[in-house]
Lab assay of single mutants.
Amino acid sequence: MMAYMNPGPHYSVNALALSGPSVDLMHQAVPYPSAPRKQRRERTTFTRSQLEELEALFAKTQYPDVYAREEVALKINLPESRVQVWFKNRRAKCRQQRQQQKQQQQPPGGQAKARPAKRKAGTSPRPSTDVCPDPLGISDSYSPPLPGPSGSPTTAVATVSIWSPASESPLPEAQRAGLVASGPSLTSAPYAMTYAPASAFCSSPSAYGSPSSYFSGLDPYLSPMVPQLGGPALSPLSGPSVGPSLAQSPTSLSGQSYGAYSPVDSLEFKDPTGTWKFTYNPMDPLDYKDQSAWKFQIL
């Protein structure tokens, strides 16, 4: 009977010793046993002879290597770790002494450095960015050149030099007046198309007034536009458009034309069986010896 009264063996659950049927240790109110408190290391007290050895090595170098620390530790009968900690504390003490010396050398008012006064946003004049500046400075420094007289040679050079070769001289006033084509001369031969040399188009003023001019072949195509416009036809070669000034309004060009419109200028042929003959000019830059190549039959 006494065997049943004795408590059973101890069981360990999660490293906790349980005594038989008792489960009081598993209750929430019972805390787990805490780790033992780490003991504080005792402070090391250095003797005068030990301090002399350490100070002598510190005077040589503030960062001794492990071999120098072990050698000193053997002399003063201390572990190497204590020597390492002593050098660490000695360097910190040396830095603190240097900072105190710097503070003593500075004057009393030198510690508080005078800061520059901050400028207020409204006091300083700042350039306004509302208006974009002129990058080319046209509004201040540029002045347009004065327009020359209508009959000045410089204007003629600016007008005619675009179309004339570089080897030719500017046309005088008398020749510029001949550039304007007359109405009857352009409409006299509506079906004849003559190819003149390129030099005649640039230099010869008579080429624009003769039936064999460069633009005589364009007349049949330009004249039928007159009834559609409801007024006189516009002429690209009329009046002052080739003269001194090219800047004319469309209203000033509306009254200039080749001449009176005639039914002869239409595109319809009077004789459907007729042929169109292209007159060959020996001055043509295209060297075609066979003139029969310039004739064709309209079917």
Rank of each mutant, 00 (worst) to 15 (best):
E71H: 08
L179V: 04
M225E: 01
A92I: 15
P244M: 10
L179W: 08
A198F: 14
P64Q: 14
L218Q: 01
L54W: 15
S161D: 02
L54G: 15
P250M: 12
D284T: 12
Q39M: 10
S266F: 12
Q101L: 10
A59Q: 02
T187Q: 07
Q101R: 10
N77P: 14
Y4S: 00
A73L: 14
D219T: 13
K102Q: 02
P31I: 11
P250R: 14
V83M: 14
K75D: 14
P21Y: 11
A17P: 01
P197H: 08
M26L: 08
E55N: 11
A56V: 08
V242C: 02
D271N: 08
P147D: 06
L136V: 11
A207I: 10
V242W: 13
A121E: 01
C202Q: 02
G110F: 01
Q104R: 13
A15H: 09
P64E: 14
F296D: 00
C94H: 07
A56G: 09
G109S: 04
T45A: 04
G243V: 10
V157F: 07
M225I: 06
M283G: 06
Q84A: 06
L267S: 00
V30R: 09
Q248M: 04
Y32F: 11
F215N: 00
S167Y: 13
W86L: 14
P36M: 11
S203D: 04
R82Q: 14
Q84M: 03
I162Q: 00
P135Q: 08
A117N: 02
S169R: 05
Y191P: 00
L25V: 05
P224T: 11
R43V: 15
S152D: 02
Y195G: 00
Y258T: 03
L54C: 15
S204R: 11
P107M: 06
A247T: 09
A293Q: 02
G137F: 05
Q96A: 05
L54P: 13
P31R: 09
F269V: 02
P170N: 04
S167V: 06
E42W: 10
P227H: 10
V83P: 14
K88I: 12
A73H: 14
P211L: 13
V180I: 10
A192P: 01
K38V: 11
S245A: 09
Q103R: 14
D290E: 05
G255N: 05
Q105E: 05
A92G: 12
S241F: 14
R41F: 14
R95E: 14
V72P: 14
R176S: 03
F215D: 00
P236W: 14
D140H: 02
A3I: 15
S143D: 04
A181M: 13
L246E: 02
K75R: 07
M193G: 01
S124L: 05
V66L: 03
G274L: 07
V66H: 04
T129W: 03
G151A: 04
H27T: 06
Y288L: 09
V180N: 01
